[in-house]
Amino acid sequence: MVVYETIFYTLSAIILFSTLMAITRTNLVHAVVYLVLSFFGTAVLFYLLGAPLLAALEVIIYAGAIMVLFLFIIMTMRTQQPSGRTDEESAAILDGTAVATTPVQPSALSAQNRAYRRQWALPSLLGSVCLVAAGFVIFSTTDTRFQLMPAMASPVEFGWFLFKNYWFPVEIISFLLFVALVGALYLGKKEGKAHLDHGEGNQ
């Protein structure tokens, strides 16, 4: 059972660290690749908590499909760095060496630095307060100290359960995916169609 605990805590550390790195990056590609690592960790955690089918789906859907979709969009747009900084500037700001090393417009950079800090300070503070409150709530009841017994739900068992009890939500979800497909196609095509209308109007 020590092995179980060790794996759980190691995975938690990996997931939390990679997510923290992902949300603080200013380069979008780095953020997405860190997030893929986080989702791989989550997949192994799902397996550890007894959901092998969900672990496979986590790798296929989250780490595979969704993150690759993000990468595609980032690489096709490729307009500018987030928050309008170049890589060197944001690196300098992250290091805190921006003011010391750049003689050019030190005041502008330090103002940017301060804006960056202020942008993160309040959300982080509020998040920490929420986390402390959640910790108190979670550990104030004895119910949450329940020790988890390792168990495994085989994919066959899960599939039977899903289509016996939740066949209607599965149908609704498939319909939702269809609507999302239509919506994405419509949004992607609209510009071209407007262009076409404009051309016809000119004739």
Binding site: S12, I15, T19, I138
Partner: peptide
């Protein structure tokens, strides 16, 4: 053994 509260804390931190 891992307690259920620890899983909840991990999920809360990620959230």
């Amino acid at each position: 053994m891992v307690s259920y509260g620890e899983v909840l804390i991990l999920a809360g931190m990620l959230f």
